[in-house]
């Protein structure tokens, strides 16, 4: 009994510490960004100018850049990560090809982001430039689209491995019942496996999206780092995380530093809300939630 209690206490402590840590990160972000919050208030979120010389700061271009790149990356990666998940979770759970695919996607998650950045810069950027030349738009090569492409590859393992696991966990009696009713394999996937596992698939996508929002190094290298609101997907832009990484080391004035931390606070809040909304959706979609 006593050991049980200790065990429970230990679990509570570990979980509580994490919650406390997150909370204190939030508090310290708020405290450090107070000078900037006092100076700019909410106009910081909606303003368009980032001018370290005049010490006038606002975040809208970066918020747009962050959301645009991560949404686009998720959209590009979605068909691929779903296809991988269904293939290795349902069609071919064992075997050489399946384990090869599983190994390769897991490997994607282990590659350092600076390598993705270099690959993007030296391989993808020249390709995109050719594409842009053929479309007769300014051939920057770098920009939102390039960054999203790099990101989409980076996040595939996050979405696919979780989806693969939940798809593989669909009880076989449910599937067999579907087949017994005369369904084809596609129909079983559509009507049985997908509804059963959709909340898990969505959770994986959420994880991938969070990863895309916070990615810094690879994005910095290929997005063009232009502190303006982009008017097309092929234009250079910038993201919250990338601005912080770029300017933090040399920010000498207090208000500049504080504004960079304010950007971090906004990033924190965005991540928090996306996770919150995502979790609500997951609950709605889960088998228990619907019944």
């Amino acid at each position: 009994m006593l050991r049980d209690r200790f065990f429970k206490f230990g679990l509570k402590l570990a979980g509580g510490l994490i919650a406390l840590l997150i909370f204190s990160i939030f508090v310290s972000l708020v405290i450090a960004s107070i000078p900037s919050i006092k100076e700019f208030g909410l106009s910081f979120v909606f303003g368009k100018e980032w001018n370290p010389v005049e010490e006038h700061f606002s975040a809208l271009p970066f918020i747009i850049g962050t959301l645009l790149t991560s949404v686009l990356a998720l959209a590009i990666s979605l068909p691929f990560s779903l296809a991988i998940a269904f293939f290795s979770g349902e069609f071919s759970k064992k075997g050489l090809i399946s384990s090869l695919i599983a190994y390769a996607t897991d490997l994607l998650a282990g590659i350092p982001s600076v390598i993705y950045g270099f690959w993007g810069l030296f391989f993808l950027v020249p390709l995109i430039r050719k594409l842009e030349l053929s479309f007769n738009i300014p051939p920057y090569g770098v920009g939102i689209f390039t960054a999203s492409l790099v990101l989409s590859i980076m996040i595939i393992p996050y979405a696919s491995s979780m989806a693969r696991d939940v798809i593989a966990l669909v009880p076989s009696d449910l599937k067999e019942a579907g087949f017994a009713l005369g369904s084809t394999r596609l129909e079983v996937i559509k009507k049985v496996i997908f509804p059963y596992s959709v909340s898990g698939i969505f959770a994986g996508l959420l994880l991938a999206f969070g990863r895309a929002i916070g990615e810094t190094m690879a994005v910095t290298m290929v997005i063009g780092n232009a502190n303006r609101i982009p008017h097309s997907l092929f234009e250079p832009a910038n993201t919250l995380a990338s601005v912080i990484a770029n300017e933090f080391t040399e920010a000498t004035s207090d208000i500049h530093l504080s504004s960079l931390i304010y950007l971090g606070l906004i990033l924190f809040i965005i991540t928090f809300f996306i996770n919150y909304i995502g979790n609500m959706i997951i609950e709605r979609m889960s088998v228990n939630g619907r019944s």
Binding site: E49, N51, P52, N225, A226
Partner: peptide
């Protein structure tokens, strides 16, 4: 624009570090 360690650039692309700018220039 004015002067500073980071400024609000009217045009162009940003590269991180000397090698970032050199990479942009060499490739474009």
């Amino acid at each position: 624009v004015g002067k500073g360690k980071s400024v609000n650039w009217p045009v162009g692309l940003g590269g991180k570090g000397n090698q970032g700018v050199a990479g942009l220039v060499k490739n474009m």
